[in-house]
Simulated assay, not measured.
Amino acid sequence: MSRIQTVVSDLRNGLGAVKLRPDVKKVTLMFSRKSDNAGARYFLRENMPRIQYNNPAIEFEVKKVKEPGVSPELTVEFANNDIKKIPCSRIQSSDICKQFLSATTEGSA
């Protein structure tokens, strides 16, 4: 398998490789490079590419804050202007992804 085939296969499979609800409008990940933000950084590197690949119509934004002490947070905006905030402080990336998918896939409303 070539390197490109491996990358595409990884994007299509694994945690986060799902279609989100059609009313998800925007996803914002905010974190600092310091303190307890490792889960958010790993989520950005491991899970967010899969989510973006499988949901090209949704806007994704990443805010890396330089000041320490900022609590990492994943914010989901829906078409009806509802906002769901998922705190990411001291949580592993897989748990962040599971909480995100619970709030944004068809089974939830």
Rank of each mutant, 00 (worst) to 15 (best):
E59C: 12
P87C: 12
E61A: 15
L101Q: 00
I96A: 04
L20M: 06
N13T: 15
N80L: 11
A40S: 02
G39D: 00
T28R: 05
G69I: 05
I4E: 07
P87K: 13
R45L: 15
E77F: 12
I83N: 08
S89L: 11
I51A: 03
P87G: 15
A79G: 08
T75H: 02
N55C: 07
V27Y: 00
D23K: 09
G69Q: 05
E73P: 03
K63D: 03
V62L: 01
A109I: 11
A103T: 05
C88F: 03
K66M: 11
R45D: 06
L11S: 02
N47Q: 15
F78P: 00
K34M: 13
K26N: 07
S89H: 10
N54Y: 07
D95K: 14
S71F: 13
T104Q: 06
G69M: 07
S108W: 11
A109D: 13
I51Y: 01
S71G: 13
T28M: 06
D23E: 06
N81W: 07
G14W: 05
G16S: 07
K84F: 07
N55E: 03
F78D: 00
N55H: 06
E46P: 05
Q92R: 10
S71A: 15
R41I: 05
K85L: 08
R45Y: 10
S93A: 15
Y53E: 04
R33G: 15
F60L: 04
N47G: 09
S32V: 05
F31M: 08
L15W: 02
N37W: 00
